[in-house]
Simulated assay, not measured.
Amino acid sequence: MTDPDRLERPRVVRVPLARRAAFGLFFASGAAALIYEVSWSRQIGLRLGQTVQAAGVVLAAYFAGLAIGSAVAARLTRAVRPLVGYGACELLVAAWAALVPTLLELSGGLMA
């Protein structure tokens, strides 16, 4: 039988505030990416109809952007600090997301 006073307390792991903030930002970034995808699916669906082809266009564009971003990032990893590069990529994505509705409006004649 063990003495209750001799039992060890569970070890509490303290995560630094900066790391918790980074995890929160990564989570918010992923949530924003899902929102972008749904928004773009609806916008393109209004142009092309709610079809499998419209969903395919959105997914193809989304994954092409991921592939291009990965290829560019692979070349820049040694030249840029990781968090600075990540922040720059997030700003670029935000700018692109702001432009997509305008680009879709301008390309309305092409999609018709």
Rank of each mutant, 00 (worst) to 15 (best):
G30E: 04
L48A: 12
A33M: 10
R78M: 07
Y86G: 11
A74N: 05
A67L: 15
V57D: 11
W40E: 14
T51W: 08
L25R: 15
F23P: 00
S39P: 00
A74G: 08
W96A: 15
F26Y: 08
L59T: 13
A61W: 07
W96D: 02
E37H: 07
L92R: 02
P101F: 05
W96N: 02
S39N: 05
W40C: 06
A22Y: 13
E90M: 13
S29L: 04
L34Q: 13
A61R: 08
F27M: 05
Y62V: 02
G65Y: 06
A97N: 04
A33Q: 12
Q50K: 09
P82A: 15
V72E: 03
Q50S: 11
T51Q: 06
Y86K: 02
I35D: 02
S39I: 00
A60P: 03
V38W: 05
L34V: 11
A95N: 05
G24V: 03
V38H: 02
E90F: 13
A94K: 01
A32F: 06
F26E: 15
L92T: 09
R75A: 07
L34A: 14
G87L: 08
I44L: 12
F26Q: 14
S29H: 08
T51H: 06
C89H: 07
G24T: 06
A67Y: 12
G56A: 01
R81N: 11
A88C: 14
W96G: 03
W40I: 15
G30F: 03
S70N: 15
Q43P: 00
T102E: 02
A73E: 10
L92Q: 01
R47W: 04
Y86H: 12
A60Q: 01
I44M: 08
L91C: 07
L48R: 03
V57H: 11
P101T: 06
T51C: 04
L92C: 05
L103T: 09
A28Y: 04
L103V: 14
L25W: 13
A55I: 05
Q53K: 04
V93Y: 02
A97I: 01
S41I: 00
V100K: 01
T51D: 08
S29E: 11
C89L: 12
L48H: 04
V52Y: 14
A31S: 13
L91K: 09
A73D: 08
A71N: 04
V57E: 11
A33P: 01
S70R: 10
A54V: 00
V80I: 15
A88E: 08
A64S: 12
L59R: 14
F27S: 07
S70E: 13
L59C: 07
A88Y: 01
Q53F: 10
G87M: 07
W40D: 10
E90C: 12
P101A: 09
V57L: 15
G85V: 00
V93W: 05
A22H: 10
V57Q: 12
